Amino acid sequence: MLKELLVCLAFAGSSAMAQDKSFTLQSPSALTDTGLLNHILPRFSLKTGIRITLSEDEGIAAFGPDGDPVFRQGDTIWHFRNSENDNTQAFYDWLTSDVGKRTVEGFTPDEGVPFSADVSVQVAAVVVALTGDAVLGEDVSLSRCGRCHVVNDSNRMNAIGSTPSFALMRSFSDWEGRFQTFYLLRPHAAFTQVKDVTDPFPDNLPSPIAPIEVTLDEIDAIVAYVGTIAPADLGGPIQSQ
């Protein structure tokens, strides 16, 4: 009798443990219908012994727009909403492991693009249209800036060698902002007047050199012209021996 009781208790304990190693996972039909979950869930269960039951309506964990990003298909990033549960945490850890990522990317859907474990947000580069008159910009650059900067080959011998050339400054990542606001940057603020923008020089602080006078339209033209200049080739980084 005692032996039978112990067997029953052992069976009940193992049954309870089996029930503990399972959870219900909510998944929208848009994801379920791809077939991805039929590919990855059996492999996860085989590895961990945790059984997952899919449900479209409810679950203690869920795939959807909220939670932690785990994989993408095209432009759609699927998130996993976890719960305070060891089994759901184990599933998340597996999904984000190298094995889980390879399993996701090893699935080929019947329709649509493949899945990817790369969930980084792709930021599109913003291209700003330069609307100024580039031809006017070259003329203004040579007449206003050419006494110090090498604007192009036509004034290469007349500029000050210690000032950066337009081609060099064009290689700066923030070149557009620099040219757009050059009159605020040292030393330009001391001798540059922008019509309807800057205040006149104080009587006790006159311009140290013949002042540069430009309009906002002329500045836009300068920026447009500089946008046509090829950035200076500064070469590759110096390699240590």
Rank of each mutant, 00 (worst) to 15 (best):
I40P: 00
F115E: 06
A117K: 03
V99S: 09
E111K: 15
S83Q: 12
A117V: 08
R81P: 01
A62I: 00
A134P: 11
N82Y: 13
L95H: 03
P114A: 13
W78V: 02
G64P: 01
I77K: 05
V119L: 06
K101N: 09
P42R: 10
E105L: 12
H79P: 02
F115Y: 04
P114G: 12
T103I: 15
G74P: 02
G100R: 09
H79E: 05
G106I: 10
W78Y: 08
V113I: 10
V119H: 04
W94M: 13
S120A: 02
D75E: 11
P69Y: 14
P65T: 01
S55W: 06
R81D: 03
L95I: 06
I77P: 01
R102F: 08
Y92E: 13
P114M: 10
T53F: 14
D110P: 14
H79F: 15
D98Y: 05
R81L: 10
A61N: 03
S120N: 11
V128L: 01
G112A: 14
L37A: 15
N82L: 11
L41Y: 13
L41S: 15
D66E: 06
V121W: 00
V104C: 07
E84D: 10
I50A: 11
E105Q: 14
I77F: 05
P114I: 13
R51V: 09
